[in-house]
């Protein structure tokens, strides 16, 4: 008699999926002495809008703002853990962590979960120690770089090429004897951010409802016409450091 090992037929088990996608888009642009970080406020799953107001952009310190996009539960938990680390840093060093250090901290925290990643695209904006506006963008497992502008999330493929054209002046030739500006003025940047989100809202179902634009101004810089903007409120906590503002606007709700 032959003895053959027959594998027992196992009952099929539906695997639990620990991830979801909650839509939305984020965007950040760095200026010479300011940084603008924006995100829409719609949170969705599939074709259902869960809420019309769920912030994706978070103030970390007086000079750092973090925008998260992807799986909302991971995003919120990640922001919570970053804030905890920043608080520990404050207790240990009696000062806020510098922006480039926050960027490296975020890369380390993301890579620590390399084999069970936070399903989140992060964009960090703020003011560097030298007073320049900065944007750092990350992938879910921690690859990062400093850039002048970045869009991420559901409508990133709609917004990023527009930004290439309008911020980096890609495919545009400067008039003879002139060069393109390396940094744009704040009012111009704000117009581009608003245009980007109205465009994304028009063509992407997961983008809309509300827009939150955070503006961080370097120490001692002028308002640059910011005071004339509607829906502006100031979040600054000290009177001798960077100033932070948020602009809240409506986007189409359909």
């Amino acid at each position: 008699m032959q003895h053959v090992a027959v594998p027992h037929a196992q009952p099929q088990q539906r695997q639990f999926n620990p991830y979801s996608e909650n839509g939305g888009t984020i965007l950040a642009i760095a200026g010479a002495n300011f940084s603008v970080i924006a995100g829409d406020t719609r949170q969705s799953e599939g074709y259902s809008i869960q809420t019309r107001y769920a912030p994706k952009v978070f103030r970390l310190t007086d000079k750092a703002v973090l925008a998260t996009n992807g799986f909302a539960a991971d995003g919120n938990m990640f922001v919570k853990k970053v804030r905890q680390r920043l608080e520990w840093y404050r207790h240990a060093h009696a000062k806020d962590m510098p922006l480039r250090a926050i960027a490296r901290l975020i890369q380390t925290m993301l890579y620590a979960r390399r084999f069970f990643p936070y399903y989140v695209y992060n964009i960090l904006g703020g003011i560097e120690e030298d007073g320049s506006g900065a944007v750092y963008s990350f992938d879910p497992v921690g690859s990062y770089e400093r850039e002048a502008c970045r869009a991420a999330g559901a409508a990133s493929s709609l917004v990023q090429p527009f930004l290439d054209n309008q911020i980096y002046f890609k495919n545009q030739t400067p008039a003879p004897g002139t060069t393109h500006p390396a940094h744009l003025p704040l009012s111009h940047v704000l117009s581009l951010v608003i245009d980007s989100f109205t465009s994304a809202t028009e063509r992407h179902i997961e983008v809309g409802d509300g827009l939150e634009i955070y503006v961080v101004l370097a120490k001692g810089s002028a308002l640059q016409g910011l005071d004339a903007i509607q829906g502006l409120s100031e979040l600054t906590t000290t009177d001798d450091g960077e100033r932070m503002f948020v602009i809240r606007r409506n986007l189409k709700r359909d």
């Binding site: 620990p18 979801s20 259902s48 869960q50 809420t51 019309r52 107001y53 799986f71 909302a72 539960a73």
Partner: peptide, 24 residues
């Protein structure tokens, strides 16, 4: 709201399950 994934959100009206599609 909170669900099995840890997803959270808040709104002036909330519904779970079929309610999210029919009643919301």
């Amino acid at each position: 709201f909170v669900d099995l994934l840890g997803t959270t959100y808040s709104a002036s009206t909330l519904a779970t399950g079929y309610g999210a599609h029919i009643a919301q």
